[in-house]
Design a protein around this nucleic acid. Structure first.
Lengths: 205, 205
DNA sequence: GTCTATATAGGGATAGAC
DNA sequence: GTCTATCCCTATATAGAC
Protein backbone atom coordinates (compact mmCIF):
# COMPACT_ATOMS: atom_id res chain seq x y z
CA UNK A 1 0.00 0.00 0.00
CA UNK A 2 2.20 2.77 -1.30
CA UNK A 3 -0.38 5.48 -0.98
CA UNK A 4 -0.34 5.27 2.77
CA UNK A 5 3.41 5.74 2.86
CA UNK A 6 3.28 8.71 0.54
CA UNK A 7 0.79 10.50 2.69
CA UNK A 8 2.88 9.79 5.69
CA UNK A 9 6.11 11.15 4.25
CA UNK A 10 4.39 14.23 2.89
CA UNK A 11 2.91 14.91 6.28
CA UNK A 12 6.28 14.46 7.95
CA UNK A 13 7.75 16.97 5.57
CA UNK A 14 4.97 19.48 6.05
CA UNK A 15 5.18 19.29 9.81
CA UNK A 16 8.96 19.62 9.78
CA UNK A 17 8.83 22.50 7.31
CA UNK A 18 6.23 24.21 9.45
CA UNK A 19 8.40 24.03 12.54
CA UNK A 20 11.56 25.19 10.80
CA UNK A 21 10.03 27.98 8.70
CA UNK A 22 8.09 29.37 11.65
CA UNK A 23 11.16 29.44 13.83
CA UNK A 24 13.72 30.67 11.32
CA UNK A 25 11.73 32.42 8.62
CA UNK A 26 12.18 31.83 4.90
CA UNK A 27 15.70 33.20 4.65
CA UNK A 28 16.94 31.58 7.83
CA UNK A 29 15.46 28.16 7.13
CA UNK A 30 17.62 25.41 5.61
CA UNK A 31 16.33 22.60 3.47
CA UNK A 32 18.85 20.33 5.20
CA UNK A 33 17.31 21.07 8.58
CA UNK A 34 13.82 20.41 7.31
CA UNK A 35 14.99 17.11 5.84
CA UNK A 36 16.63 16.13 9.12
CA UNK A 37 13.53 16.98 11.14
CA UNK A 38 11.41 14.96 8.73
CA UNK A 39 13.81 12.03 8.94
CA UNK A 40 14.61 12.01 5.22
CA UNK A 41 17.19 13.59 2.94
CA UNK A 42 17.25 16.72 0.83
CA UNK A 43 16.71 14.96 -2.46
CA UNK A 44 13.42 13.55 -1.30
CA UNK A 45 12.37 16.96 -0.16
CA UNK A 46 12.79 18.26 -3.70
CA UNK A 47 11.02 15.22 -5.03
CA UNK A 48 7.88 16.12 -3.09
CA UNK A 49 8.05 19.90 -3.39
CA UNK A 50 10.16 21.02 -6.29
CA UNK A 51 11.75 24.01 -4.59
CA UNK A 52 12.16 25.76 -1.27
CA UNK A 53 9.99 28.55 -2.58
CA UNK A 54 7.13 26.19 -3.39
CA UNK A 55 7.39 24.39 -0.08
CA UNK A 56 7.40 27.69 1.75
CA UNK A 57 4.42 28.96 -0.16
CA UNK A 58 2.44 25.91 0.87
CA UNK A 59 3.38 26.36 4.53
CA UNK A 60 2.77 30.08 4.56
CA UNK A 61 -0.66 29.94 2.94
CA UNK A 62 -1.69 27.35 5.48
CA UNK A 63 -0.35 29.45 8.35
CA UNK A 64 -1.99 32.58 7.03
CA UNK A 65 -5.38 30.93 6.75
CA UNK A 66 -5.09 29.71 10.35
CA UNK A 67 -4.44 33.22 11.56
CA UNK A 68 -8.06 34.41 11.56
CA UNK A 69 -10.35 33.56 14.42
CA UNK A 70 -13.71 32.24 13.38
CA UNK A 71 -16.29 34.87 14.21
CA UNK A 72 -18.82 33.81 11.60
CA UNK A 73 -21.28 32.74 14.26
CA UNK A 74 -21.37 36.34 15.38
CA UNK A 75 -21.23 38.11 12.04
CA UNK A 76 -23.61 35.81 10.17
CA UNK A 77 -26.83 37.51 11.16
CA UNK A 78 -25.32 40.91 10.65
CA UNK A 79 -26.94 42.43 13.70
CA UNK A 80 -24.92 40.87 16.46
CA UNK A 81 -24.26 42.25 19.90
CA UNK A 82 -21.05 44.25 20.04
CA UNK A 83 -20.02 42.52 23.25
CA UNK A 84 -20.41 39.17 21.57
CA UNK A 85 -18.16 40.31 18.77
CA UNK A 86 -15.43 41.45 21.12
CA UNK A 87 -15.61 38.30 23.17
CA UNK A 88 -15.53 36.10 20.08
CA UNK A 89 -12.57 37.97 18.63
CA UNK A 90 -10.49 37.98 21.79
CA UNK A 91 -11.26 34.37 22.62
CA UNK A 92 -10.71 33.37 19.02
CA UNK A 93 -7.24 34.86 18.96
CA UNK A 94 -6.36 33.42 22.34
CA UNK A 95 -7.39 29.96 21.21
CA UNK A 96 -5.21 30.20 18.15
CA UNK A 97 -2.23 31.82 19.82
CA UNK A 98 -2.07 29.64 22.89
CA UNK A 99 -1.80 26.77 20.47
CA UNK A 100 0.59 28.49 18.04
CA UNK A 101 2.35 31.31 19.87
CA UNK A 102 4.84 31.99 17.09
CA UNK A 103 2.27 32.34 14.36
CA UNK A 104 1.90 36.14 14.45
CA UNK A 105 5.63 36.84 14.45
CA UNK A 106 5.97 34.48 11.50
CA UNK A 107 3.11 36.06 9.56
CA UNK A 108 4.11 39.67 10.05
CA UNK A 109 7.76 38.91 9.44
CA UNK A 110 7.14 37.19 6.14
CA UNK A 111 4.55 39.69 4.99
CA UNK A 112 7.06 42.40 5.64
CA UNK A 113 9.52 40.48 3.48
CA UNK A 114 7.18 40.42 0.51
CA UNK A 115 4.17 42.69 1.00
CA UNK A 116 3.05 42.37 -2.62
CA UNK A 117 1.20 39.13 -2.08
CA UNK A 118 -1.04 40.45 0.69
CA UNK A 119 -3.98 41.15 -1.62
CA UNK A 120 -3.87 37.65 -3.03
CA UNK A 121 -3.60 36.05 0.40
CA UNK A 122 -6.44 38.08 1.85
CA UNK A 123 -8.70 37.23 -1.04
CA UNK A 124 -8.14 33.51 -0.55
CA UNK A 125 -9.25 33.73 3.08
CA UNK A 126 -12.68 34.97 2.13
CA UNK A 127 -12.69 37.39 5.03
CA UNK A 128 -15.29 40.15 5.05
CA UNK A 129 -14.00 43.09 7.05
CA UNK A 130 -17.06 45.17 6.18
CA UNK A 131 -19.32 42.89 8.18
CA UNK A 132 -17.26 43.42 11.28
CA UNK A 133 -17.14 47.15 10.76
CA UNK A 134 -20.89 47.25 10.35
CA UNK A 135 -21.50 45.59 13.71
CA UNK A 136 -19.36 48.20 15.40
CA UNK A 137 -20.98 51.05 13.50
CA UNK A 138 -24.44 49.81 14.42
CA UNK A 139 -23.48 49.77 18.08
CA UNK A 140 -22.28 53.35 17.80
CA UNK A 141 -25.44 54.46 15.99
CA UNK A 142 -27.54 52.76 18.64
CA UNK A 143 -25.68 54.68 21.31
CA UNK A 144 -24.42 51.55 23.01
CA UNK A 145 -20.78 52.48 22.83
CA UNK A 146 -18.84 55.73 22.61
CA UNK A 147 -18.32 57.56 19.33
CA UNK A 148 -15.22 56.40 17.53
CA UNK A 149 -13.85 55.26 14.19
CA UNK A 150 -14.99 51.62 14.04
CA UNK A 151 -11.63 50.69 12.64
CA UNK A 152 -9.98 52.07 15.75
CA UNK A 153 -11.81 49.56 17.89
CA UNK A 154 -10.86 46.70 15.60
CA UNK A 155 -7.21 47.73 15.61
CA UNK A 156 -7.25 47.96 19.39
CA UNK A 157 -8.81 44.55 19.84
CA UNK A 158 -6.29 42.98 17.52
CA UNK A 159 -3.36 44.84 19.06
CA UNK A 160 -4.24 43.86 22.61
CA UNK A 161 -4.78 40.24 21.63
CA UNK A 162 -1.80 39.65 19.41
CA UNK A 163 1.05 41.88 20.50
CA UNK A 164 1.88 40.16 23.79
CA UNK A 165 2.66 37.02 21.81
CA UNK A 166 4.91 38.87 19.41
CA UNK A 167 6.68 40.74 22.18
CA UNK A 168 6.81 37.76 24.50
CA UNK A 169 10.59 37.45 24.81
CA UNK A 170 11.05 41.14 25.57
CA UNK A 171 8.04 41.62 27.81
CA UNK A 172 8.69 38.51 29.86
CA UNK A 173 12.32 39.49 30.36
CA UNK A 174 11.41 42.95 31.53
CA UNK A 175 8.47 42.35 33.79
CA UNK A 176 8.27 38.68 34.73
CA UNK A 177 10.41 36.17 36.59
CA UNK A 178 10.22 33.57 33.85
CA UNK A 179 8.54 32.86 30.55
CA UNK A 180 6.36 30.32 32.36
CA UNK A 181 4.94 33.04 34.58
CA UNK A 182 4.40 35.24 31.58
CA UNK A 183 2.44 32.44 29.95
CA UNK A 184 0.18 32.34 32.99
CA UNK A 185 -0.42 36.05 32.50
CA UNK A 186 -1.30 35.39 28.88
CA UNK A 187 -3.81 32.77 29.91
CA UNK A 188 -5.64 35.35 32.01
CA UNK A 189 -5.75 37.83 29.21
CA UNK A 190 -8.81 36.45 27.51
CA UNK A 191 -10.73 37.86 30.47
CA UNK A 192 -8.73 40.98 31.28
CA UNK A 193 -8.51 42.20 27.70
CA UNK A 194 -12.23 41.81 27.25
CA UNK A 195 -12.88 43.80 30.41
CA UNK A 196 -10.29 46.42 29.55
CA UNK A 197 -11.97 47.06 26.22
CA UNK A 198 -15.52 47.04 27.54
CA UNK A 199 -14.67 49.51 30.30
CA UNK A 200 -13.34 51.84 27.65
CA UNK A 201 -16.15 51.77 25.13
CA UNK A 202 -19.39 50.95 26.95
CA UNK A 203 -21.56 53.88 27.84
CA UNK A 204 -22.82 53.94 31.43
CA UNK A 205 -26.47 54.68 31.96
CA UNK B 1 42.22 65.58 5.46
CA UNK B 2 41.64 61.86 5.40
CA UNK B 3 39.79 61.72 8.68
CA UNK B 4 36.83 63.56 7.25
CA UNK B 5 36.54 61.05 4.42
CA UNK B 6 36.74 58.11 6.79
CA UNK B 7 33.92 59.43 8.87
CA UNK B 8 31.93 60.01 5.76
CA UNK B 9 32.35 56.52 4.36
CA UNK B 10 31.66 54.91 7.68
CA UNK B 11 28.46 56.89 8.00
CA UNK B 12 27.43 55.93 4.48
CA UNK B 13 27.92 52.30 5.37
CA UNK B 14 26.05 52.54 8.63
CA UNK B 15 23.11 54.24 7.01
CA UNK B 16 23.01 51.74 4.18
CA UNK B 17 23.35 48.81 6.56
CA UNK B 18 20.59 50.22 8.68
CA UNK B 19 18.22 50.43 5.74
CA UNK B 20 19.01 46.98 4.40
CA UNK B 21 19.07 45.12 7.72
CA UNK B 22 15.83 46.70 8.88
CA UNK B 23 14.09 45.80 5.65
CA UNK B 24 15.46 42.32 5.09
CA UNK B 25 16.61 41.15 8.53
CA UNK B 26 19.97 39.56 9.22
CA UNK B 27 19.45 36.43 7.16
CA UNK B 28 17.85 38.20 4.23
CA UNK B 29 20.36 41.03 4.02
CA UNK B 30 23.20 40.84 1.51
CA UNK B 31 26.58 42.48 1.97
CA UNK B 32 26.53 43.25 -1.74
CA UNK B 33 23.31 45.22 -1.39
CA UNK B 34 24.65 47.18 1.56
CA UNK B 35 27.77 47.99 -0.44
CA UNK B 36 25.69 49.13 -3.40
CA UNK B 37 23.50 51.35 -1.25
CA UNK B 38 26.58 52.85 0.34
CA UNK B 39 28.16 53.44 -3.07
CA UNK B 40 31.20 51.28 -2.36
CA UNK B 41 32.20 47.64 -2.83
CA UNK B 42 32.12 44.58 -0.63
CA UNK B 43 35.82 44.59 0.14
CA UNK B 44 35.63 48.03 1.67
CA UNK B 45 32.70 46.93 3.75
CA UNK B 46 34.83 44.21 5.28
CA UNK B 47 37.65 46.67 5.73
CA UNK B 48 35.48 48.85 7.97
CA UNK B 49 33.54 46.12 9.76
CA UNK B 50 35.29 42.81 9.67
CA UNK B 51 32.22 40.67 9.23
CA UNK B 52 28.51 40.75 8.54
CA UNK B 53 27.91 39.63 12.11
CA UNK B 54 29.89 42.54 13.54
CA UNK B 55 28.23 45.07 11.29
CA UNK B 56 24.84 43.73 12.20
CA UNK B 57 25.61 43.79 15.88
CA UNK B 58 26.50 47.46 15.63
CA UNK B 59 23.27 48.27 13.79
CA UNK B 60 21.07 46.21 16.04
CA UNK B 61 22.40 47.60 19.30
CA UNK B 62 21.82 51.08 17.99
CA UNK B 63 18.30 50.22 16.87
CA UNK B 64 17.52 48.54 20.16
CA UNK B 65 18.63 51.52 22.19
CA UNK B 66 16.44 53.81 20.08
CA UNK B 67 13.44 51.67 20.78
CA UNK B 68 12.65 53.03 24.24
CA UNK B 69 10.75 56.28 24.63
CA UNK B 70 12.30 58.66 27.12
CA UNK B 71 10.01 58.85 30.11
CA UNK B 72 12.67 59.83 32.64
CA UNK B 73 11.10 63.22 33.13
CA UNK B 74 8.05 61.43 34.45
CA UNK B 75 9.71 58.64 36.39
CA UNK B 76 12.51 60.67 37.95
CA UNK B 77 10.60 61.94 40.94
CA UNK B 78 9.07 58.53 41.52
CA UNK B 79 5.68 59.90 42.41
CA UNK B 80 4.42 61.05 39.04
CA UNK B 81 0.85 61.34 37.87
CA UNK B 82 -0.36 58.20 36.18
CA UNK B 83 -1.89 60.21 33.35
CA UNK B 84 1.43 61.87 32.70
CA UNK B 85 3.07 58.48 32.46
CA UNK B 86 0.58 57.21 29.94
CA UNK B 87 0.79 60.33 27.86
CA UNK B 88 4.59 60.29 27.91
CA UNK B 89 4.72 56.62 26.94
CA UNK B 90 2.22 56.85 24.10
CA UNK B 91 3.68 60.07 22.73
CA UNK B 92 7.18 58.73 23.15
CA UNK B 93 6.43 55.66 21.07
CA UNK B 94 4.59 57.66 18.45
CA UNK B 95 7.53 60.03 18.07
CA UNK B 96 9.90 57.15 17.55
CA UNK B 97 7.66 55.08 15.31
CA UNK B 98 6.48 57.84 13.04
CA UNK B 99 10.13 58.42 12.34
CA UNK B 100 11.13 54.75 12.14
CA UNK B 101 8.03 52.71 11.39
CA UNK B 102 9.92 49.49 10.70
CA UNK B 103 11.85 49.52 13.94
CA UNK B 104 9.52 47.30 15.99
CA UNK B 105 9.20 44.59 13.33
CA UNK B 106 12.97 44.57 13.04
CA UNK B 107 13.55 44.35 16.78
CA UNK B 108 11.04 41.62 17.50
CA UNK B 109 12.07 39.64 14.44
CA UNK B 110 15.74 39.60 15.34
CA UNK B 111 15.12 39.00 19.02
CA UNK B 112 13.08 36.01 18.03
CA UNK B 113 16.02 34.81 15.95
CA UNK B 114 18.41 34.89 18.90
CA UNK B 115 16.61 35.41 22.19
CA UNK B 116 19.66 34.60 24.27
CA UNK B 117 21.09 38.10 24.05
CA UNK B 118 18.02 39.86 25.44
CA UNK B 119 19.39 40.10 28.97
CA UNK B 120 22.59 41.67 27.74
CA UNK B 121 20.77 44.13 25.52
CA UNK B 122 18.33 45.17 28.21
CA UNK B 123 21.11 45.75 30.70
CA UNK B 124 22.91 48.08 28.34
CA UNK B 125 19.82 50.27 28.00
CA UNK B 126 19.76 51.02 31.70
CA UNK B 127 15.99 50.77 31.77
CA UNK B 128 14.30 50.50 35.14
CA UNK B 129 10.98 48.75 34.74
CA UNK B 130 10.36 48.79 38.48
CA UNK B 131 10.03 52.54 38.51
CA UNK B 132 7.27 52.43 35.95
CA UNK B 133 5.48 49.64 37.78
CA UNK B 134 5.66 51.63 41.00
CA UNK B 135 3.93 54.63 39.48
CA UNK B 136 1.08 52.43 38.35
CA UNK B 137 0.88 50.64 41.68
CA UNK B 138 0.76 53.93 43.55
CA UNK B 139 -2.13 55.10 41.41
CA UNK B 140 -3.99 51.90 42.20
CA UNK B 141 -3.29 52.19 45.92
CA UNK B 142 -4.47 55.80 45.85
CA UNK B 143 -7.71 54.66 44.26
CA UNK B 144 -7.18 56.78 41.16
CA UNK B 145 -7.47 53.90 38.73
CA UNK B 146 -9.20 50.54 38.78
CA UNK B 147 -7.63 47.49 40.41
CA UNK B 148 -5.40 45.57 38.04
CA UNK B 149 -2.02 43.97 37.65
CA UNK B 150 0.25 46.96 36.93
CA UNK B 151 2.02 44.93 34.29
CA UNK B 152 -1.25 44.49 32.48
CA UNK B 153 -1.55 48.22 31.99
CA UNK B 154 2.01 48.46 30.74
CA UNK B 155 1.50 45.62 28.29
CA UNK B 156 -1.68 47.26 27.03
CA UNK B 157 -0.06 50.64 26.53
CA UNK B 158 2.80 49.09 24.63
CA UNK B 159 0.53 46.85 22.56
CA UNK B 160 -1.75 49.66 21.50
CA UNK B 161 1.16 51.91 20.61
CA UNK B 162 3.39 49.49 18.77
CA UNK B 163 1.26 46.83 17.12
CA UNK B 164 -0.34 49.00 14.43
CA UNK B 165 3.13 49.69 13.07
CA UNK B 166 4.02 46.02 13.02
CA UNK B 167 0.73 45.04 11.44
CA UNK B 168 0.63 47.98 9.09
CA UNK B 169 0.67 46.09 5.78
CA UNK B 170 -2.11 43.76 6.85
CA UNK B 171 -4.28 46.29 8.66
CA UNK B 172 -4.06 48.89 5.95
CA UNK B 173 -4.94 46.34 3.27
CA UNK B 174 -7.97 45.14 5.18
CA UNK B 175 -9.52 48.34 6.44
CA UNK B 176 -8.09 51.30 4.53
CA UNK B 177 -8.03 52.55 0.97
CA UNK B 178 -4.29 53.09 0.92
CA UNK B 179 -1.28 53.03 3.16
CA UNK B 180 -1.28 56.83 3.11
CA UNK B 181 -4.71 56.90 4.68
CA UNK B 182 -3.63 54.38 7.23
CA UNK B 183 -0.71 56.62 8.12
CA UNK B 184 -3.16 59.45 8.77
CA UNK B 185 -4.98 57.14 11.14
CA UNK B 186 -1.69 56.41 12.88
CA UNK B 187 -1.03 60.11 13.32
CA UNK B 188 -4.31 60.48 15.21
CA UNK B 189 -3.53 57.60 17.49
CA UNK B 190 -1.42 59.54 19.93
CA UNK B 191 -4.70 61.12 21.02
CA UNK B 192 -7.15 58.26 20.56
CA UNK B 193 -4.98 55.65 22.27
CA UNK B 194 -4.48 57.90 25.26
CA UNK B 195 -8.21 58.45 25.53
CA UNK B 196 -9.00 54.80 24.98
CA UNK B 197 -6.76 53.83 27.87
CA UNK B 198 -7.91 56.57 30.22
CA UNK B 199 -11.56 55.73 29.67
CA UNK B 200 -10.79 52.18 30.67
CA UNK B 201 -8.79 52.72 33.84
CA UNK B 202 -9.86 56.03 35.39
CA UNK B 203 -12.38 55.78 38.16
CA UNK B 204 -15.35 58.15 37.88
CA UNK B 205 -16.30 60.00 40.97
C1' DG C 1 9.72 6.48 -3.47
C1' DT C 2 14.23 6.84 -1.51
C1' DC C 3 18.99 7.10 -1.50
C1' DT C 4 24.25 8.83 -2.69
C1' DA C 5 26.79 11.73 -5.30
C1' DT C 6 27.39 15.85 -7.73
C1' DA C 7 26.46 20.07 -10.31
C1' DT C 8 25.81 25.03 -9.86
C1' DA C 9 25.22 29.43 -7.87
C1' DG C 10 25.50 32.72 -4.43
C1' DG C 11 27.45 35.16 -0.78
C1' DG C 12 30.90 36.10 2.93
C1' DA C 13 35.52 36.92 3.27
C1' DT C 14 40.53 37.71 1.84
C1' DA C 15 44.80 38.88 -1.22
C1' DG C 16 47.14 42.11 -3.31
C1' DA C 17 47.64 46.15 -6.43
C1' DC C 18 47.20 51.09 -6.37
C1' DG D 1 41.43 53.98 2.09
C1' DT D 2 39.68 51.91 -2.08
C1' DC D 3 39.56 48.91 -5.82
C1' DT D 4 39.57 44.16 -8.74
C1' DA D 5 39.99 39.51 -8.66
C1' DT D 6 39.47 35.38 -6.35
C1' DC D 7 38.94 31.97 -2.73
C1' DC D 8 35.96 28.87 -0.36
C1' DC D 9 32.12 27.33 1.86
C1' DT D 10 27.34 26.67 2.07
C1' DA D 11 22.82 25.84 0.27
C1' DT D 12 19.63 24.83 -3.42
C1' DA D 13 18.83 21.78 -6.85
C1' DT D 14 19.48 17.75 -10.07
C1' DA D 15 21.30 13.08 -11.96
C1' DG D 16 21.15 8.59 -11.65
C1' DA D 17 21.36 4.08 -9.12
C1' DC D 18 18.41 1.00 -6.47
Amino acid sequence: MKNKKDQDTEQQILQAANRVFQKKGYEGARMQEIANEAGINKALLHYYFRSKEKLFDRIFREAFSNFWPSIEKVTKGGNAEIKELIEAAVNGYMDILEDKPFLPAFIVGEINRSPERIKDLLLSTGLQPEKVLKIVQDAIDAGEIVEMDPRELIVNIVSLSIFPFIGRPLLSSMFWESTEEFDLFLKDRRKTVYEFICRSIMKRT
